[in-house]
Simulated assay, not measured.
Amino acid sequence: MAAAPYSPSVASAPDIDRAEDALSRVQELQARIRGMQATKLESPALPTSAAMAAVLPSGALRQGSAYSVDGSLTLAMALLAGPSASGAWCGVVGVPDFGAEAAARFGVDLERLVLVPDPGEHWLTATAALVDVLTVVVLRPPTRASDTDVARLGARLRQRGAALVVLGPWPQAEARLSISSSSWTGLGDGHGHLGAREATVTAIGRLGYDRPRSVRLWLPDGRQQFSTVELQDAAPLLQAVTA
């Protein structure tokens, strides 16, 4: 018995329409993702110290972005130091124990620093007001912000081109920075004084970055400056080569 001739199936018009509609949606989503990525990559960078540039996933503080710092006020000051030393106005909200003298030693210009130590329940309003006029704002929220408030403040950051450094967790942060280990130098056997702090700082970027980044930093070094341990160790060698 002869085999029946092969007859290819023919897609109906509704099937073709559904396929074309699905393809169009996929292409639209791809275009939106590319647009979001381009916007993120093109967001201007703020002046950032070399030490912090070595840690941050994008190599700098970015305008319109928020950053989360796990507990370390010194690390927040390190993020402030670069923009402040370059002439930017900065602010600190909800941090009554912020050490102005220590910040000044680290390079923060106190003449361009606005402090709101205890805004109480109006902390979000105070932060939004400072974001409107300052370049970098450090915030310690007393309570968890709602998703709506986070979205509104994020939109304000992007509109004004400011950066937010939050002491504690913050949804949709560009990166989360933490100190995984640290040790002090300068102390002997019952004598001496604290001279420098060596710390391992780890940054975990939001979705899209490959892996966490860990860098050994001086927070601060013996000159009360922030620097990478590798650069500090290489300084005597560089001086010998250039002498």
Rank of each mutant, 00 (worst) to 15 (best):
T125Y: 06
H122A: 10
Y6R: 12
E111P: 08
A128W: 06
G94T: 07
Q37L: 15
A234P: 01
A45I: 07
L79H: 12
T200Q: 15
S182W: 14
P5V: 09
G35L: 03
T143F: 01
L217M: 12
H191P: 02
G120W: 00
A128H: 14
V166H: 01
D149L: 08
A11K: 14
L23V: 10
T127I: 02
S182C: 10
D109L: 06
L124V: 12
P57H: 00
A50L: 14
P236N: 04
P8D: 08
A163R: 05
E101V: 13
A76T: 02
V116H: 00
R152N: 11
T125Q: 13
I204Y: 11
S180C: 04
D132L: 06
A66T: 02
G186Q: 05
K40F: 09
T48M: 04
L194R: 13
V201G: 07
L113G: 08
S49N: 11
G154W: 01
A104T: 12
P236G: 05
M36T: 08
L217D: 13
L79S: 06
R216L: 12
R112M: 06
I33H: 11
Q232V: 13
L157R: 01
S24P: 06
L130H: 04
L187T: 08
F226N: 03
A3D: 15
L164S: 03
P119L: 08
T202I: 11
V150S: 07
P212S: 00
W170R: 09
T200L: 09
F98K: 07
L130V: 11
R213F: 01
D118E: 15
A162T: 04
T135I: 05
D97W: 07
V92W: 05
T135F: 02
R197V: 06
L61T: 01
S24T: 15
S214E: 01
G168P: 02
L124T: 10
A51C: 07
T39W: 11
E20H: 11
Q37D: 12
M77N: 10
L153Y: 02
W89F: 05
T127Q: 10
V166F: 00
Q224T: 00
L61N: 00
V201L: 07
P169Y: 07
V201Y: 07
A162D: 07
L130E: 10
V165M: 00
A203E: 03
A102S: 07
Q172Y: 13
G82N: 05
G195A: 15
D132F: 01
D189N: 04
A103V: 02
D109S: 09
A100S: 14
S214N: 04
Q224G: 04
S72H: 09
V95G: 07
V138C: 07
G222M: 03
A53M: 02
E111Q: 15
L124S: 12
